[in-house]
């Protein structure tokens, strides 16, 4: 009976490193929800600023996808 060889560290982040990334991904997701969904944020804008709110907020969420990708280097990591 033999155990499989451990993956190199760069392929298999340690527990704290992985949980840190998971927390970061959850924080990004929460920020996306607040920016786009929170009614008090919607109430702040009227007139032309409402248009710019949608544009900037959606641009930030678009950029957040790249941040999520950067925190997700592992195949299969949720």
């Amino acid at each position: 009976m033999s155990l499989p060889a451990p993956a190199p560290d760069y392929l298999n982040p340690s527990g704290p490193q992985r949980s840190g990334r998971t927390r970061l991904r959850r924080a990004i997701f929460a920020a996306d929800l607040i920016i786009l969904l929170a009614p008090p944020v919607h109430w702040l804008f009227s007139g032309q600023s409402a248009f710019w709110y949608f544009l900037v907020a959606n641009a930030l969420v678009t950029l957040s996808l790249f941040a999520l990708w950067a925190t997700s280097s592992e195949e299969g990591a949720a």
Binding site: L36, L37, N58, T62, L65
Partner: peptide, 10 residues
Amino acid sequence: SLSYSLLSVV
């Protein structure tokens, strides 16, 4: 519609 579409992508 743009906002909920992007949240769907997330």
